[in-house]
């Protein structure tokens, strides 16, 4: 079994608080919210399992002697893509939902492209397919259309909310905003060596 301290990236001499802090930081990093509709969700889930096991093991070791009760301080998270199992009146859309749930995105896309009528459900499912492929702008466009066509539908609204969820992990000390809210007054990029100017002529830097 791998060293639990190595998994949490701390020294075996770390205090209880440090262990907890390291665990929480990693749990934040691999949180399912960061991997929604992400093809790497299964790998994040594996990481989270490793971290949970390491944390439990350290707790167990530290409480050895005292009666140990399996503490549930390590949280369990649910990963994986949302299930699109709502029944559909349209048999083709039902097949699309099944294809999405089986992870067969190209099949779902083919079925959608063959459909003539683009109703709210079609837009919703197309949005889900786009989101799985990383086509975020098209996904947003389709889900917005679905919500506009059927404003009362909870499933469509939730999918749009999930897409607009901007949760993401950043280590302490990094800003939390996005591109448009970035404070660029303090931004300094590492410039190049500028060994070659744009015309391609070498610049002699150290003569």
């Amino acid at each position: 079994m791998t060293d639990p301290y190595k998994v949490l990236n701390i020294a075996p001499t770390a205090s209880d608080d440090e262990v907890k802090h390291a665990y929480r930081e990693l749990a934040r990093k691999y949180h399912p919210d960061n991997y929604h509709d992400n093809p790497l969700a299964d790998l994040a889930q594996e990481k989270m399992k490793e971290i949970n096991e390491a944390y439990e093991q350290i707790q167990k070791q530290r409480k050895a002697g005292a009666a140990y009760t399996a503490s549930s301080s390590a949280q369990s998270y649910s990963y994986g893509d949302a299930a699109y199992s709502n029944a559909s009146a349209n048999p083709v859309m039902q097949r699309v939902r099944m294809a999405i749930n089986n992870g067969d995105i190209s099949m779902a896309e083919r079925l959608l492209n063959e459909t003539q009528e683009h109703d709210a459900e079609w837009n919703f499912l197309m949005g889900v397919v786009c989101s799985r492929r990383g086509w975020m702008d098209d996904a947003k466009r389709c889900l917005e259309t679905a919500c506009r066509m059927d404003p009362g539908n909870v499933e469509y609204r939730q999918a749009l909310q999930m897409l607009q969820n901007t949760a993401s992990y950043r280590p302490a000390g990094y800003h939390r905003g996005g591109t448009m809210t970035y404070d660029d007054t303090c931004m300094r990029l590492c410039a190049g060596l500028a060994c070659y100017s744009t015309t391609g002529c070498p610049i002699f830097c150290c003569i």
């Binding site: 960061n34 992400n38 790497l40 947003k140 901007t166 993401s168 992990y169 591109t179 448009m180």
Partner: peptide, 22 residues
């Protein structure tokens, strides 16, 4: 348009960061 584009750029950065974390 800038803010809509900013949002979709953020989405790609988040996907990159998620992959990088692994």
């Amino acid at each position: 348009v800038k803010s809509a584009l900013g949002e979709t750029l953020d989405a790609s950065i988040r996907q990159m960061a998620g992959a990088y974390a692994l």
